[in-house]
């Protein structure tokens, strides 16, 4: 209880800190910390696989990628002139709706919640039978029961890989392309003026 409360408090504090920060480098680092804290809480909530992944992804790869981007794109955020009223309003309404939605939720850890009782027998027993003793039920679900989702997930990763490659790869031809594009834009400028 104490641990989870303190982790949750820390998460909230970190989130606010990130929101207020102007230094992007620090914000990225704090995001990593945020992910790490989140992962620890997931560990407490009996989801070691997710915690492991979140730690690897949130605290690892995405931090690394963001730092890489920062190195290419600049580290300081300019103060915004736009009024924060509208976003605050939107967020306020959304948040209020969500809190309103929680009021009828099964309570935290409720063993009678539909999530726990709906599927009978549950995945743990069923997988013991179907999988001939595969200890990690999460893996069984991931790769077999919901293997198709995971195929989708792999496709997403594949898509992202190809997308990044396509967006960022420099080809010799690409340079020519950009030159013609630049000349086209100057031409347009000339006409409009």
């Amino acid at each position: 209880m104490f641990v989870s409360v303190s982790i949750l408090t820390l998460l909230a504090v970190t989130a606010i800190a990130i929101a207020r920060m102007r230094d992007l480098w620090a914000a990225v680092m704090f995001t990593g910390i945020f992910s790490f804290l989140g992962a620890s809480w997931m560990l407490i909530l009996d989801a070691p696989d997710v915690a492991f992944t979140e730690a690897a992804v949130g605290a690892g790869i995405s931090t690394f990628l963001m730092l890489g981007t920062l190195a290419l794109a600049g580290k300081k955020e300019k103060p915004t002139t736009a009024s924060p009223i509208v976003p605050l309003l939107v967020v306020g309404i959304t948040g209020a709706a969500l809190v309103y939605g929680t009021l009828d939720m099964p309570h935290f850890g409720d063993p009678a919640a539909p999530v726990q009782t709906r599927i009978e027998p549950g995945f743990v027993e069923k997988s013991q039978h179907d999988m001939h003793g595969l200890p990690n039920v999460v893996t069984a679900l991931l790769a077999s029961y919901r293997g198709y989702d995971t195929l989708g997930e792999t496709a997403v990763i594949f898509t992202a890989g190809i997308a990044v490659l396509m967006i960022l790869r420099r080809d010799p031809e690409d340079c020519d392309h950009r030159v013609t594009q630049k000349s086209a834009s100057t031409e347009k400028k000339g006409r409009s003026s």
């Binding site: 919901r146 198709y148 989702d149 989708g152 997930e153 496709a155 997403v156 898509t159 992202a160 190809i162 997308a163 396509m166 967006i167 594009q181 086209a184 834009s185």
Partner: peptide, 25 residues
Amino acid sequence: LFNVFVFLEISSLSTYALISLGKTR
């Protein structure tokens, strides 16, 4: 339902990338 989300993301991600192929900056 969750599968909807996964495939939505496949189509979305590829669309983002395809859009970014446009000629102008």
